[in-house]
Write a protein that binds this DNA or RNA. Structure first.
Length: 152
RNA sequence: UCAGUCGGCCGGACGGCCGCUCCGGCAAGCGCCGAAAGGCCGCCGGGGAGGAAAGUCCGGGCUCCCUUGACAUACGGUGCCGGAUAACGUCCGGCGGGGGUGACCCCAGGGAAAGUGCCACAGAGAACGAACCGCCCGCCUUCGCCCUUCAGGGCUAUGGCGUGACAAGCCCUCGGGCUCGCCACGCCGAAGCAGCGCAAGCUGCAUAGGCGGGUAAGGGUGAAAAGGUGCGGUAAGAGCGCACCGCGGUUCCGGCAACGGAGCCGGCAUGGCAAACCCCACCGGGAGCAAAACCGAAUAGGGACGGCAAAUGCGGGCCGAUCGCGCAAGCGAUAACGCCGCGGGGCGGUGUCAGGCCCGCCGUCCGGGUAGGUUGCUCGAGGCCAUGUGCAAACAUGGUCCCAGAGGAAUGGCCGUCACGUAUCGUUCGCGCAAGCGGACGGUGCCCUACAGAACCCGGCUUACAGGCCGGCUGAUAUU
């Protein structure tokens, strides 16, 4: 599992699917290459001053570290956007929140499907939107092996 | 013991599990990611946020631009003196002024007899000095009548005050204000003493009023009223005179200086504001690590070469023309028309064709340069200790140590125990009649710490901060 560091990757993930939770927002986007799962963190300035933002990011990072990597989708980029509740919310509860967020079907909140290919980078120009849509629409066939291999 | 003042320091501790980042050592697959630059992966050891890392307000180092070295101007900044320093608006030590019983604290502290400007409101007067009240002097007027127990009461003239009407003048923010005249009404209202004279009366003092002057002592206004206090002096007053203080000038002494002290002279002239303009002295080129250097894709531009291709095009040939060379024959070059051969790709449109419109493409290399990567990047005006110099800030010498280097941004996350703080409850002890106060112990809850996160690096300033510790000094009280 790698960290997400380039600004272009963050912009790409921000246009993807998102799941809301009390302490964070999970954004995700599938990639075409066969690289590892990458996770980034975003804490905006409206969440407080620098120590508060640092603490939010560190708790979110610890959540991802504690979580079983098999519950994430392979070849995906994830971005956790921190909220103010991440400072005070119980850590075990947040861990459950994150686990639910990874298994919950994602949905697009504000981006229309017409805007998505315009914001996509140049690689995989034609088939990227349709593929993302199909994975969003039917989670059960893609996720069935993931749930089956969860016991180990 | 209480209250205060100044300075310094800390800013949770220990343990468990799981991680992040940097450095060093060892090992290392012809490994993985990437087009490349470059990056990643193992084990061991070590380091890893602050007193303000903050605000970005000053001063530097460093980098680039520029030549701006100097002078002048403009703009900005600083502003008692001396020292410290790389430098500063910082620090230290003094000086002056102000506050406090005191330790101590505060001061944007050059120039107001270079100039311009301002000083609201209140007040008579706010700057080429002012007369509202008051005090004093001079002149003029006043001191009448009735009752009467001689204590007083009453009436009224001139007059004074108040209110109202009218008229005039001036100012004016056109609402009014001020001054004067006149009329009406109301109110006040002529106390006394002495001398001369038989008396009527006269004169003087006093009273009251008016006019003219003197006066800056006093009242009142104000942030500020033209040196202060006291004595003398005067009609009353006044630096009018004197003493002391203050101020100005000058001489001497002390001090590197700011400045201080003493003497003499001057009766005092110079109100305040320069965080109003201004004057004087000194300082300042600009931008900033997202600086800058190196490496360096894709895409679109630029250049060179090669290939394909070309259609107002290419190739070939003939005739003629022009130009150059040549004595000449002739040779070479040029472009257009005519002749022959060759006729690509795309767009749009149409039932289809004809007709119409547009024109380069590919490869290699070079150069600028973007994303990206690497460097800059932490050994430094460095920390600690000792000695010496100095009142101190600080400096010098010696020894010793290496002490964060991230980059969507590491330095942590989750627990446990303890401490501290705080709230509440219970038990108990001391004092007290009681209410209550103080201490100790235990349980529970809260905060589980305040302010706050390095971003190239230093020196400062400013601001924020739960709680706690130490030391110096001052005042008060108590005891010895």
């Amino acid at each position: 599992m790698d960290r997400l560091r380039q600004r272009a990757d963050f912009v790409a993930v921000a246009n993807g699917a998102r799941v809301n939770s009390p302490a964070f927002v999970l954004q995700s986007r599938p990639r075409d290459d066969s690289g590892p799962i990458r996770v980034g963190f975003t804490v905006t300035k409206k969440n407080g001053n620098a120590p508060a933002r640092n603490r939010i990011r560190r708790r979110l990072r610890e959540l991802v570290k504690r979580l079983d990597p098999v519950s994430m989708q392979p070849h995906h980029d994830y971005v956790l956007v921190g909220r103010r509740d991440a400072l005070s919310r119980d850590f075990a509860t947040m861990l459950d929140d994150l686990r639910i967020a990874f298994t919950k079907p994602a949905r697009h909140t504000h981006k229309g499907p017409a805007k998505t290919p315009a914001n996509r980078p140049s690689k995989a120009p034609s088939k990227a939107p349709s593929k993302a849509r199909s994975e969003r629409r039917g989670p059960t066939p893609g996720r069935a092996p993931a749930t089956s291999r969860k016991p180990d």
